[in-house]
Design a binder for these strands. Structure first.
Length: 870
RNA sequence: GCCUGUGUGGCGGAAUUGGUAGACGCGCGGGAUUCAAAAUCCCGUUCUCUUAUGAGAGUGUCGGUUCGAUUCCGACCACAGGUACCA
């Protein structure tokens, strides 16, 4: 480069330095995990980020996720752990089939091409990954093993079949995923979607409900919010299962009555009606002979299968005309309705309704003019005499669901809600009508999918023998290569020959199961496969995962299924993991968001296609006006993704890593901005400058003393300490703030005395190592500049001198009536009395105390002084 | 609808257990360097009033507890994630 004055261009060039250092790491297989034997005394650390779906391109959200895991992995390695940090591909799923339909490519080809492209991008990020353990879940080796596990679970009685609802597209004759149903219509055909029953495979996850619930509370290194979400999802509730006997003639086959489940037996005196789910066996039987009920069921089936759709749907009901006896009031009967807000999947699929104390019952009662009978008097002052005496609830505008005492409830009157629950249950039990039960919101896991690109369920249907497992020796049941996507529906089912097979038991012609497994199966045990392909001892050594990192959107389903899967594997003798818990530590990170841009004619534009003018945005190519829309999660459809390749090409991988970890706390969303990336790139140069200034400085043996030296050393050690704790606590943004400060401190020291040189070297050496988890390539370059030994990625974490962290003096703010008015500097050892005397002697304080009496002086040593005066 | 979060300057955010609100960065303003620019370095930057000194207000809204609240409690508003076939 040509430069004036003969000075070299003093710049760090990431484009040449980054590949150079990655090659150095590869040369010695630095990031390959050691076997238990090789590891010796080193403790193990299994660091794992949720593996990606190979969508085609990496985006900045991936960079953030994997950069976070890399910080943890590199930090652990520097602290002497034997680290396992693997990577692979969650490769089955719908997008591959959609691509097959749109572009006429095979899902497998599409997937493996995407993997190759994304891996290339991954390599540029400088992540400390052990690629020797890589696999894709669509590899037959992997899904074959998954089939074997399925059969083991089946042996153990954890697998069964039952009917369940799916979204059915009547035009395409195909099952739709919830996200493929838009406003009740199929996304391709536009036809009204209807619910349809299909026989499907299920895992008995509910067998583990109690264990999954009680153990999740003990996962101390999981975020509280995730534990709460899991607990709420499992939804344990104690209540009463009881039957209401028929008043009058009983329907055939149901003579004993209607079984209901309730969590509010204390409100039985407020019962207004009994309601059945539209899918209750009784409802279905009646509908066979009643056209009006059949029509009602058809109306209910128009709502999608998702919980949100069902809950938000307008409440509708059908009066069957039948009546049941009230269990406590002789001669009293209640009407039996069919109501769409009663879910067959929860409890018994039937309820009794107490509109005064349940909001859904209340809404329904108002709509169909059913009685509202208040039976709980709110505790405290909320009790309103008029409300209580009205009796009919005519003046209630909402259900009362809070605590209180029973009223207008016969033998329960005056009892608290909890007491009344127990006594009501006891009375029902005495009468032989029911008993106390525990119910869970959690439902069994439906694993059947009517799709091609997934793991085939390894069973055979034989006319004579029934359901026959595929013999272990015949695994894997491979997906057929030749497959057609030119008509909707399951290609495995349409395949001309694939499903034809001889029955393993009787050798007569039989048919393969054509359902494939839900892709959540694939991600429920991949961490065990990373630990070892097939060695149980090595799996036992690595598991559980010490630090799992992934998006908060997986807080319930993925994590719950994985917790079930490891328990099931343990219980069939496939995993030596006594707790059954796969992830000892969990961190859930936020998403990367970006502004969206839309041209005046309604096209979405990529961020790279627009530029900012003083008061507006324009499309670079055309100069046309562009509107900036919402800042949302990066998605292909809104074209607001940012490709890391461009950033790496412009600023380097380190700057990209640095930016996604700066500013926002890891658990929160972060917005991608160009200026932020530029700022990171500037900082890279600034750091390099600090080290470069030291590179030809004389290594000085001067003693490490003198006021300025101690101050500089103190700053370095304090900041190293701050970086260390921030990493441990997943506060990477704080760690980065400390590194910023540290760099400025070292920069300022360049203006200082020559005597500072030793302290500067020490600080730089510590900084390089603290920098490594964040910007590993730059750290290597800096380490080399100051003559560091070997690779900084292999160097030990700096040791902080605790003696340097202690400060002798402390600054205390002085408040008058809670407002800061002055500050004093006192010795750390000063007593309360000394501090108080000093504070009151401050001239700045006096004017605020003028004409006032000092009521109290609060002295919190090391923190604050507050003078209360009036 | 339900469950779980989040809300602080122009912007992203910091504030270890209830103890100096705005660390650090971006942006912006000013200065140094330069023939000039880029790059770099230094200083300033919550708002309002004030010549300065300084004063007042201020962490989504309203209320409460406390000597003291971004932090704890109650009610509300907005946004985000999940809601069992997106991964």
């Amino acid at each position: 480069m040509k430069a004036g004055g003969g000075s070299m261009a003093l710049r760090y060039d990431p484009q040449s330095a980054e590949p150079k250092w990655r090659a150095e790491w590869d040369k010695i297989s630095l990031f390959k995990a050691k076997s238990p034997a090789q590891a010796g005394d080193a403790p193990k650390a299994y660091v794992l980020e949720m593996f990606p779906y190979p969508s085609g391109r990496l985006h900045v959200g991936h960079v953030r996720n994997y950069a976070m895991g890399d910080v943890v992995a590199r930090h652990k390695r520097a602290k002497g752990y034997n680290v396992l940090h693997p990577m692979g591909w969650d490769a089955f799923g719908m997008p591959a089939e959609n691509a097959a339909m749109e572009h006429n490519t095979h899902p497998g080809k599409w997937t493996y091409q995407n993997i190759a492209a994304m891996k290339k991008q991954f390599m540029k990020l400088g992540l400390s990954l052990d690629w020797s353990r890589e696999f894709a879940t669509c590899d037959p080796d992997y899904y074959g093993e998954q089939q074997r596990l399925f059969l083991k679970f089946m042996d153990k009685g954890l697998v069964y079949q039952k009917k369940a609802k799916v979204n059915w597209d009547p035009v395409d004759n195909t099952v739709l995923a919830n996200e493929q149903v838009i406003d009740g219509k199929g996304w391709r055909s536009g036809a009204e979607v209807e619910q349809r029953d299909l026989v499907q495979w299920f895992f008995r996850i509910t067998d583990y409900a109690e264990d999954l619930l009680s153990e999740v509370q003990k996962l101390e290194r999981w975020p509280e919010k995730v534990r709460t979400m899991q607990a709420n999802w499992i939804g344990r509730s104690e209540g009463l299962q009881m039957r209401f006997e028929w008043a009058g003639e009983a329907p055939q086959g149901h003579e004993t009555g209607v079984e209901i489940f309730t969590t509010r037996p204390d409100t039985l005196y407020g019962a207004s009606f009994v309601a059945l789910s539209p899918d209750h066996p009784l409802t279905i039987e009646w509908a066979e002979s009643r056209e009006d009920l059949q029509a009602f069921r058809a109306e209910c089936a128009k709502v999608g299968t998702s919980e949100a759709d069902i809950e938000k749907a307008e409440k509708i009901g059908f009066d069957t005309g039948l009546r049941v006896k009230h269990p406590f009031i002789d001669g009293e009967t209640l009407p039996v309705w069919v109501a769409n807000f009663v879910l067959m999947g929860y409890g018994t699929g039937a309820i009794f309704a107490c509109p005064a104390h349940d909001q859904r019952d209340f809404d329904f009662a108002r709509k169909y003019d059913l009685p509202i009978l208040p039976v709980v008097k709110p505790s405290g002052e909320e009790a309103d005499e008029a409300w209580v005496s009205s009796g009919q609830g005519a003046d209630m505008d909402a259900a009362y669901t809070g605590p209180g005492t029973a009223m207008q409830s016969g033998f329960l009157d005056g009892k608290s809600v909890d007491e009344a629950k127990s006594e009501a249950i006891a009375k029902i039990a005495d009468a032989g009508l029911g008993e106390r039960t525990v119910n869970y919101r959690l439902r069994d896991w439906g694993v059947s999918r009517q799709r091609y690109w997934g793991c085939p369920i390894p069973v055979i249907h034989c006319e004579g023998c029934g359901i026959v497992p595929v013999p272990i020796a015949d695994l894997p049941v491979k997906l057929p290569e030749a497959v057609s996507f030119d008509r909707p529906g399951n290609p495995l089912f349409h395949h001309p020959t694939w499903k034809d097979v001889d029955c393993p038991t009787c050798a007569k012609p039989a048919q393969r199961e054509t359902d494939t497994l839900d892709t959540f199966n694939d991600s429920s045990w991949y961490f065990a496969r990373f630990a070892s392909v097939d060695d149980p001892a090595e799996r036992a050594y690595w598991l559980p995962v010490d630090q799992y990192v992934g998006g908060v959107e997986h807080a319930v389903l993925h994590l719950l299924y994985a917790r079930f899967f490891t328990r099931a594997m343990r219980d069939v003798g496939e995993l030596d993991l006594p707790s059954g818990e796969p992830f000892a530590g969990l961190f859930t990170q936020g998403m990367v968001t970006h502004a969206t841009f839309k041209s005046d004619n309604g096209r979405w534009l990529q961020p790279s296609e627009v530029e900012q003018k003083p008061n507006h945005w324009i499309e670079t190519a055309t100069g046309e006006n562009v509107t900036m829309g919402d800042i949302v999660k990066m998605s292909k459809s809104k074209k607001n993704t940012v490709d890391p390749d461009e950033i790496i090409a412009t600023f380097g991988a380190d700057a990209a890593r640095w930016f996604v970890l700066s500013d926002s706390p890891p658990e929160r969303d972060v917005e991608w901005t160009q200026s932020g990336a530029e700022g990171s790139a500037r900082f890279v140069q600034r750091v390099w400058g600090v080290f470069n200034a030291l590179s030809d400085a004389p290594r000085d043996d001067a003693p490490m003393e003198g006021e300025a030296t101690v101050a500089l050393r103190r700053a370095s050690h304090q900041l190293a300490q701050a970086v260390d704790t921030a990493i441990e606590e997943f506060r990477f943004n704080s760690a980065i703030a400390s590194i910023h400060e540290w760099t400025s401190v070292l920069k300022k020291a360049e203006q200082g005395d020559d005597d500072l040189i030793a302290a500067r070297f020490e600080g730089a050496s510590m900084l390089a190592r603290c920098l490594t988890p964040f910007m590993p390539h730059l750290a290597e370059e800096c380490w080399a500049l100051i003559g560091g030994e070997g690779l900084v990625s292999a160097a030990a974490w700096p040791v902080v001198d605790a003696g340097l962290l202690v400060e002798d003096n402390v600054t205390l703010p002085i408040q008058v009536n809670g407002k800061r008015r002055a500050e004093i500097s006192v010795a750390k050892t000063a007593t309360k009395d000394e501090i108080e005397a000093l504070a009151l002697a401050q001239s700045a304080i006096a004017s605020f105390l003028d004409g006032k009496d000092i009521k109290k002086v609060i002295v919190v040593p090391g923190r604050i002084v507050n003078i209360v005066a009036s």
